[in-house]
Computed example of a mutant assay.
Amino acid sequence: MEEAKKIFVRADLPAVKDDRKALVTNGLEAGIVSYILRDEDPEFRKLGKMEDAVMTKDGRSVDPAWEIARIDSPEDQEKVLALAGSKKGVIVETGDWSVIPLENMIARFRGSGTKIYAVAKTKEDAELYLKTMENGTDGIVIDTSDPAEIGRFRDLVGTPAPVELSEVTVEDVKPIEMGDRVCVDTCSLMHPGEGMLIGSYSNCLFLVQSESEDNGYVATRPFRVNAGAVHEYCMVPGEGTRYLSEISAGDPVLIVGRSGNARVGSVGRCKVEVRPLLIVSASDGSRTYNVILQNAETIKLVTPEGAVPVTELKKGDRVLAHVETGGRHFGMKVEETITEK
């Protein structure tokens, strides 16, 4: 699974402590959990749970696993390139990125075990660093004196790329034996047309709608996707998949809408219960795929125009799915011939 890119806030530079604190509080409110802090400000770590807190003294990291490097010359570049494989992370700042081809940095550090983060003063610079050589840097470090600017950077790594959806044609719907199915309750409210991508095969994931529509019998649960049998795959951030049986509270999942627009949600809880199941088989014209869901009218597959309860699906109906070539190995996409049936 592709590892998510990371945003740091550089909160060690302002001379005034209250200004440094404002950068941290605004960053936490924007959902950013990684920071560069002065070693004289350890109490800032109590303002919110942090994933990374790189402490500095006189602008340099006090943790030998991290390096903060300034590049102003080719000689500086060579020193930084030599750090690949010897550090957990290297944070690179420079006054002029034309001094150092960013491509060289990304190529040298890729696969070395050392993450490379570029300091960005503007959102436009950050976008460039994250896209250079397709994969870009492992993340960015926000360098701003204005706490209000931090929120502008958040969506750079917080919003996943759209997912390509296509129509598949239902070939058969039939009840099967009872089985263990998973309800995924997220910490997000979803709208009609939004849900999760679920499937028995990793190369075809059906868009299963959240319980966001009132059917007159039970109250809506717009935070919930009745996702299907425990063996099935669901798409997660980074274009990876996980088995539904593995998902638990705190895990990230991908919430996808009818248009393919995606966002990341956090799981609040998962419920595994024995329920009657049915199997929906559908074809893209060349192959047939299936998804196994609870046999109940509250579970719906998304169509180009709306959503249809699985209990009302019939042969010839068209539903939305994400279809891809290749397969998965430990949740990561691989280009190889894999037969699933």
Rank of each mutant, 00 (worst) to 15 (best):
T339H: 09
G260P: 12
E149C: 01
N104K: 14
P162M: 07
S200W: 00
K314D: 06
E171Y: 05
D12M: 04
S145R: 05
H329M: 11
V119I: 04
V163T: 15
K5D: 07
G195S: 05
R224T: 00
R224Y: 02
P222N: 08
S166V: 05
E246T: 12
I292N: 10
A11C: 06
D39R: 12
L189N: 07
W97K: 07
V208P: 01
V208E: 04
M196G: 01
I106S: 04
E29N: 11
M50P: 00
E340G: 00
P42K: 03
F8N: 05
Q209E: 15
R328E: 03
A22L: 08
H191N: 12
R45Y: 01
V90C: 05
V182L: 04
A30N: 09
P252Q: 05
E194A: 02
S98Q: 04
G136M: 09
P64M: 07
T339Y: 09
A120F: 01
K123H: 06
K6N: 09
V334L: 11
N135K: 07
R70W: 14
E134Y: 13
P74D: 03
K174R: 14
S34N: 15
A282T: 00
K333R: 14
E305H: 02
P304I: 03
E2V: 11
D52K: 07
L37V: 06
D138Y: 02
T298D: 09
R221C: 03
G27Y: 11
P64K: 14
K17A: 14
E149G: 05
M332S: 13
S259C: 06
I106Y: 00
A229Y: 09
C183L: 10
L313F: 09
G111F: 05
D125R: 06
L320Q: 05
D39F: 01
M133R: 09
E312D: 15
R45E: 13
E75I: 12
A15I: 06
E239M: 12
E164T: 10
R70K: 13
V182T: 08
A22N: 09
T114L: 08
D19V: 01
